[in-house]
Design a protein around this nucleic acid. Structure first.
Lengths: 334, 334
DNA sequence: GTGAAAGCGCTAACAG
DNA sequence: CTGTTAGCGCTTTCAC
């Protein structure tokens, strides 16, 4: 069933059918009604590929993320897909892993699939080594790129991010104000965002006149989905490193810290304060529940989709928007 | 840059360019080399829409799921996308929520977008009221449909599922063997799969000569992502309902149960045994870690993609494959 | 308000 | 082994 069949049955030209299909104004009410009746009767839907070829768009947006099974990224993908769908766009999901070559490959693939735009979810698409960001610049020459939780200045790329520096600084300060000064910083990512968080931690200490100590900044080299491994990592640390609080770069790490404390018989928050980051489902799985930073994921996703829709409608849009995180106080802090 | 430009620059016809592009054999090595050089030099990639129109396929598969932020579904989507991508297919993700009209609407949308097939992830797409499954039958007339974790007999639909009845029965029996007979069953879904699990629980009791008690089968009406609400639900139960074990239909519910026990000061597993289902990240977030049923998600996903690839290559494939779950014993059982 | 016809860029059947 | 040509099904410009 094609537009030709419909035009024939309705006794009009294909141009007219096309007009009613696309809601063009210049069709008489009578003709429109007649055509609509035939379309209805035949249960006709236009061929999406032919439409795509003509319009050079199939209303699809690529979503690139390292790992859609990651709690945080899965949530982001969920919110983005939802809001895009409400705006009549569909999403092609593509998970890249953390390898640069694969990121390049799949970003290219999406561009070649002729998506209208791609949203890169997560800070790990921007490297601190700027040469490694050329693939982003190249792709941005073809279609608009939107970055969630990354900061990158480039024509045709738009960023929505949370001020991770400030949030981490505030969270760390919150611990300090409670009277604890020896705070371990536990992190798992050296992405731009990961490093910003680390700076926030350092800044909070410095501002409060607490000297920085390298041994209190610990990088967990494993997979943060492996919660027991995080606990084991903490257990394996030099016993001479003393601390009474852990500021974690994400909730997974924080849960690992809590497991460690439980195994060691430490009482939370009396012996050990813990703060996480992301306000994910993990922050409520434990007792006491986890104090964590809500980095406004939903707002970020909402904003990024609004920006995208604006761009696709040729409206001028802000290239960068920065949200502020919020500390959610629960039971793991004093 | 089109195939015409390339053919012109290479001094051959567009047919020849098309041949080298598609790896057809009948091109002389010399011509192929020449064309390839031009393609390379121009950084040319064929227009995906035009290709789609000609071949009636763009190598995309629809993934329909209720909620891709759900731990379990997110994992399924992740594995499916990954394996599909390795087979040169891309995924259009579409989350429907749990409302029947929306499921219909988005399944139709995917069919109209001309995906090659759609994978329906999660048992909630099949209703116990068979009339409500007609939308599946309709869609299956157009393209092959693959169901993950659902059981449905219909031409052109293929199912991969885990035997939830057996797994739940075995898990429940495991508790009984440890000497506990008063077991609360906690569930949150009345989907086909949800009901199969409940039957498994009942069957285990019956086989062991334990009478069924309605008050020990509790349906949690809230959202299972709201962990504290699950704990509150258990707290709100009639105090006269006595039990020393909880068999939960998923890990979320089990974690809620553990939170409840911790609040109430019950020791796990001595005062209360708990078993979850899915072997998700939540099963390792607590201390002791959760005994749970691994329902072979990765194997299911692998199999469903293999089946799909087979179908698309016109190979005859089994319409239904049933995997067996496996009890992962950790710390919440005796 | 409506129709004719020219693309959009590719694949594949057919001819040579 | 290579080229010509007819679609694929739609949108859109230009006449009328």
């Amino acid at each position: 069933m094609t537009i030709y069949d419909i035009s024939e049955k309705a006794g009009v030209s294909i141009a007219t059918v096309s007009r009613v299909l696309n809601g063009a104004g210049n069709v008489s009410a009578e003709t429109r009604k007649k055509v609509l009746a035939v379309i209805e009767a035949c249960d006709y839907t236009p061929n999406a590929f032919a439409r795509g070829l003509g319009l050079n768009s199939m209303n699809t947006i690529g979503i690139l993320c390292a790992d859609s099974s990651d709690l945080y990224l899965a949530n982001a993908v969920y919110h983005i897909e939802q809001e895009l769908r409400e705006n009549n766009y569909n999403c092609i999901l593509c998970c890249t892993g953390y390898n640069l070559e694969d990121k390049k490959k799949y970003l290219n693939l999406l561009v070649n699939k002729k998506v209208d735009s791609v949203i890169l979810v997560g800070s790990n698409f921007i490297s601190n080594d700027d040469k490694e960001n050329d693939y982003i610049r190249e792709a941005a020459k073809e279609i608009p790129l939107l970055l969630l939780n990354a900061d990158f200045d480039c024509e045709n790329v738009y960023c929505s991010l949370c001020d991770d520096f400030k949030s981490t600084m505030q969270a760390t300060s919150h611990i300090i104000k409670s009277g604890v000064k020896d705070i371990l910083y536990l992190y798992n990512s050296k992405s731009y965002s990961g490093l910003r968080k680390l700076s926030g931690y350092q800044s909070a200490l410095t501002q409060n006149g607490i000297p920085l100590r390298m041994e209190l900044m610990q990088y967990f080299p494993g997979n943060h989905a492996d919660l027991p491994a995080i606990a084991d990592f903490l257990s394996s640390l030099d016993q001479n490193i003393k601390y009474h609080a852990i500021m974690a770069a994400d909730d997974n790490l924080a849960i690992g810290a809590i497991k460690f404390a439980q195994k060691k018989g430490l009482s939370i928050p009396d012996d050990l304060s813990v703060i996480g980051y992301n306000n994910s489902i993990l922050s409520t799985c434990c007792e006491p529940e986890l104090t964590t930073v809500d980095n406004r994921l939903e707002a970020l996703c909402h904003h990024i989709v609004r920006t995208l829709i604006g761009i696709l409608n040729n409206t001028e849009m802000a290239q960068k928007v920065i949200f502020s995180g919020e500390l959610i106080e629960r039971g793991t802090t004093l």
